[in-house]
């Protein structure tokens, strides 16, 4: 019987393949597509934003919305986002019984636990939430959960418009 020296598999590099050798970098057809997927969401205009507390009265919140020319307010308690209050909430939950409820806290009619996007996401993520999931306004948080800004349809269209100039 002939003894052959055992070869350790790691010594044999003949069938080794670099796992990155077949990596295909994403191909974008234009600068807008690249930006949509590779930029950070904060490249869009995400500020200024307006915040209120859950105990703010409904009518006061509506005045702030009108005065600040925004369609969405972020409701913040102890530095944390607990909801949003939007023009659509006014239409759906307030308009019909405005006189009866206008002095009650906004927490009764706000949208609880809104979908959010983190500030390391791409603009495509926010567009996805708006267009596919149907959330008109998407708060942007950092990884510690602090509010960085908000995007809505107006800012999304303004972002798109930059690429059409």
């Amino acid at each position: 019987m002939v003894l052959r020296p055992q070869r350790h598999p790691a010594d044999d590099t003949s069938d080794f393949e670099d796992p990155l050798s077949r990596y295909e970098a994403p191909v974008y057809n234009d600068e807008f597509e690249r930006a949509l997927c590779e930029d950070r969401i904060t490249e869009m205009k995400v500020t200024p934003f307006s915040t209120i507390s859950p105990s703010t009265s409904i009518v006061e919140a509506m005045s702030i919305m009108l005065g600040n020319d925004v369609a969405c307010l972020m409701v913040v308690e102890n530095d944390h986002l607990v909801g949003i209050f939007t023009e659509r909430d006014v239409l759906n939950k307030v308009a019909e019984r405005f006189d009866q409820i206008k002095h009650l806290p906004v927490s009764l009619v706000m949208t609880h636990e809104p979908a959010v996007v983190y500030d390391n996401s791409a603009p495509a993520m926010a567009l996805n939430l708006m267009a596919v999931a149907g959330f008109r306004h998407v708060p942007i948080l950092n990884m510690s959960g602090q509010i960085v800004g908000i995007v809505g349809p107006r800012r999304a269209v303004a972002y798109l418009r930059k690429f059409l100039m």
Partner: peptide, 26 residues
């Protein structure tokens, strides 16, 4: 139509970029 229409247009035309996102990275 309007802002929402434009966003839905982007999502429909470029599903590779806009639709393939995880819903809740929470």
């Amino acid at each position: 139509t309007g802002q929402k229409g434009v966003m839905e247009y982007l999502a429909d035309h470029f599903p590779r970029h806009v639709k393939v996102q995880r819903m809740k990275p929470l």
